[in-house]
Design a protein around this nucleic acid. Structure first.
Lengths: 232, 232
DNA sequence: ACCTGAACACCGTTCAAGT
DNA sequence: ACCTGAACACCGTTCAAGT
């Protein structure tokens, strides 16, 4: 009876509920605003109650990433390795883009969770099934780096963004000085601005850049595989 | 006279002195231990005194990165583009490795400083001098990502590390279960362990992996350049 | 005018006191 | 035995009071 009153007053907290609430909070207000105290408040619970379900904040972040990784599609069957890997990585990218905080949190982790390990393992399996040696699969996974999770860790979103921002809301004289000091950045930002009015914001099409370098790498891998490349 | 007493009591603080002390502190005790309060203490100064030379902690971190970027060698003259870019990036890597906190801080920045912009600009100039079109130079810079600063943003240092760590200090039965659940990671870690006893620690040679993927990218770039690749 | 101590508004986590 | 409020040991930064 007393138990019934308790559960009526508030749905019992579970680890899953905590993680889902944390993901939702981070999606909505950003990862910087996610604190144990704020999360507890969002759940209508005292901060200490969270420590029943996660031992500390690190484990909370790990759990949140597991939620995101769980959204990645399984490998497609009946495709050649390159198309299958490409599709899966683009699925991972969609999951990462749905949760803008995820890539930054992923970067901050020092050890993978079992869920992430399982994802990496299945990705390795896709290369092995495609005829890659153990040796080449190993190095190929390193070369993919964070791209295997669907993000490219570019510098500042886009290297050109700073130059462009600086160039456009500045008087002509300062713009000329900037162009003299940073001729190549200016050259590119000018070209990008002329090129394609459909791309807004930074002036760079992130998805295009991601696929450009992804395909460059995958083509390189295929070439090494065909040549029977070995590290020794 | 009063001034002389002041300077005798303590060398006057400059922005440069603050930045150098911050770099030294981060090198010694790690970036997590670097707080405005601790830095002030290391300089024998009250925390508020730092705010004379940097407007906030973000600007301090930016300044620290500028110190690191200042350690990167200028472009070598008289080399073909690929050798010159390769050498310079490996120089950047040496600078980054000297300051283990730098890559993580770099990832956390949202806008490049003028010093970083100048470095990126000169790197673009190396591609342009090597016969790359504005268009291709643009996409090539994106594809390089953080590699242009000399680090590769691998996942957890090495994807295999977790599997290997877990596999080696565990009883045979658990190891067998792990091998069944993560067959491809196990396959690679086993191979790496047999392969080369000279590599210690994680079992992966970070420098080899960095150069492997760097050369894969540079070779891909050269191929596109020769073929007169264009995005439209 | 300059400098700085105390204070503000937060953290993640510990721990002892209360039910 | 369980739960939780207060407290601890920090943050970056503001601001008013003192010299």
């Amino acid at each position: 009876m007393a138990q019934q009153v308790d559960t009526a007053r508030r749905a019992p907290l579970t680890r899953d509920l905590v993680l889902r609430a944390a993901v939702e909070l981070a999606d909505g207000t950003g990862i910087d605003a996610l604190s144990m105290r704020k999360l507890a408040q969002a759940l209508g619970v005292v901060p200490m109650a969270l420590y029943k379900h996660v031992t500390n904040k690190e484990e909370l972040l790990d759990g949140m990433l597991d939620v995101v990784v769980g959204e990645i599609d399984p490998p497609a069957a009946g495709e050649d390795w390159q198309r299958a890997v490409r599709q899966r990585i683009l699925s991972a990218r969609r999951a990462l883009l749905r949760h803008p905080w995820a890539s930054r949190v992923l970067e901050s982790r020092t050890a993978p969770t079992p869920v992430v390990l399982a994802y990496l393992d299945s990705m390795m399996g896709m290369f092995r099934a495609g005829g890659f040696s153990v040796d080449l699969t190993h190095h190929v996974m390193h070369a993919m780096g964070s791209r295997i999770m669907g993000f490219s860790q570019e510098l500042f979103g886009a290297p050109a963004a700073g130059g462009q921002d600086a160039a456009q809301d500045v008087d002509p004289e300062t713009a000329r000085q900037l162009a003299a000091r940073l001729p190549y950045i200016t050259e590119i930002t000018t070209r990008v601005a002329h090129d394609d009015a459909s791309v807004v914001g930074s002036g760079c099409d992130d998805q295009f850049e991601f696929e450009f370098s992804l395909d460059l790498l995958l083509d390189g891998f295929e070439r090494l595989r065909r040549e029977g490349w070995t590290s020794r």
